[in-house]
Amino acid sequence: MNAIEVRDVTKQLSHFTIQGLNFSIPKGYVTGFIGQNGSGKTTTIQLIMDVLRPNKGEIKLFDAPNRDVETKQRIGFVYDELYMYQHVTINQMRSFIKPLYDTWDDNLFNYYRREFNLPTRQKIKEFSKGMKMKTSLLFALAHDPELLIMDEPTAGLDPVFRRELIDLFHELMEDEKRTIFFSTHITSDLDRLADYIVLIDYGKIQLQQSMTELEENYHLVKGTKEQLSAIDKEAFLGVRVTNQGFSGLYQGDTQSLLLLQTDQPMVIEKPSLEDMMYLMKGKKR
């Protein structure tokens, strides 16, 4: 069963359009959602969370419509900013969020509050950006959600806490019952954590594969301009040409490239996620 299923979703906003969005997030895994700024990551997450409603298409969470209250009980969410009342303390905030969740666990709340070192008497508006993100996480985790949806949870965090957070996500995934779907710009976080990757660009899904598949099937090819002219450019998923030569993202067996009669062999490497984002930018599929 998939944790998230997005089918033919279209959403028209004044400044941006998502058209025919299709993807699914497998249950029990960590899926990273990547794309450059303005590619539609936040809009997609808000559609999944029912903050935005699609003009067309349907979104299901655990096989049920994403509007279902019962379904929302199973989700923990973290946005890129803390969208909560800021003039209250976290304990006051807890008092009115707690009744909405059947599975709310005060012990878990207190455990994470101590782990995150969050004060109970200070108002949220006095918190630093990192503390606000931790607050968001605290409320997302306190009802022991099966699905954690996060929009840039590591943005604005210092490197130490970012690492700790990734470790926490690893811990959360230990029982294999949970699913994590999160967007990020920091692709190194995904290298440490993600099982699957979804790449979005200009409101369209460009790629959805497991990390293993990505490692096996995608190659970063570097060479001279002359070498590029000897290859069909269409063979690449994306190519960038500079004065020094070219680098391209190639999918499939690279034997044919190695057999090309050129002065010097081309360099074939494993691409990083950042390479893939960079090379697939604007690619029409």
Binding site: Q46, V51, R67, E70, K72, F77, Y83, M84, Y85, L100
Partner: peptide
């Protein structure tokens, strides 16, 4: 105004509560 400034609707619509409710 406080609701608008803190984007409370984004938060509320994500919670297990229907909009009508």
């Amino acid at each position: 105004d406080k609701q608008n400034n803190n984007n409370i609707q984004t938060f509320v619509f994500s919670l297990p509560i229907t909009r009508t409710m």
